[in-house]
Lab assay of single mutants.
Amino acid sequence: QIFVKTLTGKTITLEVEPSDTIENVKAKIQDKEGIPPDQQRLIFAGKQLEDGRTLSDYNIQKESTLHLVL
């Protein structure tokens, strides 16, 4: 699982696999929060994550925290 922290300070927990794409993660966030993926920007280690890449591409491991910017 990974954590996604929103600007409001809320933390969302997501069940993911390293092979999941960023697009996939955004879809999971939409399921939980109702935020359309095209409004979501995910930041990890100061980098904006691209939809077509996977979590493992960015070396995002379990218990990692991503930041969600709208």
Rank of each mutant, 00 (worst) to 15 (best):
K10T: 09
F3Y: 14
T54H: 06
T65K: 05
T8V: 08
Y58C: 05
D20E: 10
F3W: 06
P36F: 06
I2V: 06
L70G: 08
K28V: 04
Q30F: 15
G34K: 06
V69I: 12
Q39E: 09
I35A: 04
R41E: 08
L14N: 00
L55F: 03
E50A: 08
E15A: 10
E15K: 09
L7C: 15
F44S: 03
G52N: 11
E50S: 07
A27T: 11
G46D: 06
T54L: 10
Q61N: 10
T21C: 05
N59C: 11
N59P: 03
L14P: 00
Q48Y: 13
G52A: 12
I12C: 03
K32D: 03
V4P: 00
Y58R: 01
K47R: 11
K26V: 02
E50K: 07
K62A: 15
E33K: 04
Y58S: 03
L68A: 02
L55N: 00
T21Q: 04
L42F: 03
T13E: 07
N59R: 07
P36V: 06
I60M: 04
I43E: 08
L55S: 01
A27R: 14
G46P: 01
K5M: 14
I43W: 15
I22R: 00
Q30V: 04
I22D: 00
Q39F: 09
N24E: 15
V16W: 13
Y58Q: 03
G34T: 03
V25R: 00
G46L: 04
L68V: 05
S56D: 08
P37L: 14
T13H: 07
L42R: 00
L70V: 12
N59E: 07
K32L: 11
K47M: 14
T8N: 12
S56C: 08
V4C: 04
L68D: 00
E50N: 07
K10Q: 09
K10N: 08
I2C: 03
K26W: 03
T65F: 07
L49M: 06
G34P: 02
Q48A: 11
L68R: 00
V69S: 09
I2W: 02
Q39S: 09
D57M: 06
S64Y: 09
E17M: 11
Q61D: 09
I12F: 13
V69T: 09
K26S: 01
I43V: 10
A27N: 12
L55Q: 00
K5Q: 10
V4L: 05
I22K: 00
L49K: 00
N24K: 12
Q1I: 15
R53E: 04
S56M: 14
K28C: 05
E15P: 06
Q48P: 11
T11H: 07
E15G: 07
T11N: 06
V69A: 08
P18L: 14
Q30W: 15
E33P: 01
T65Y: 08
T8M: 11
Q61G: 12
T11M: 12
F44G: 02
K28G: 03
V25W: 01
R53L: 12
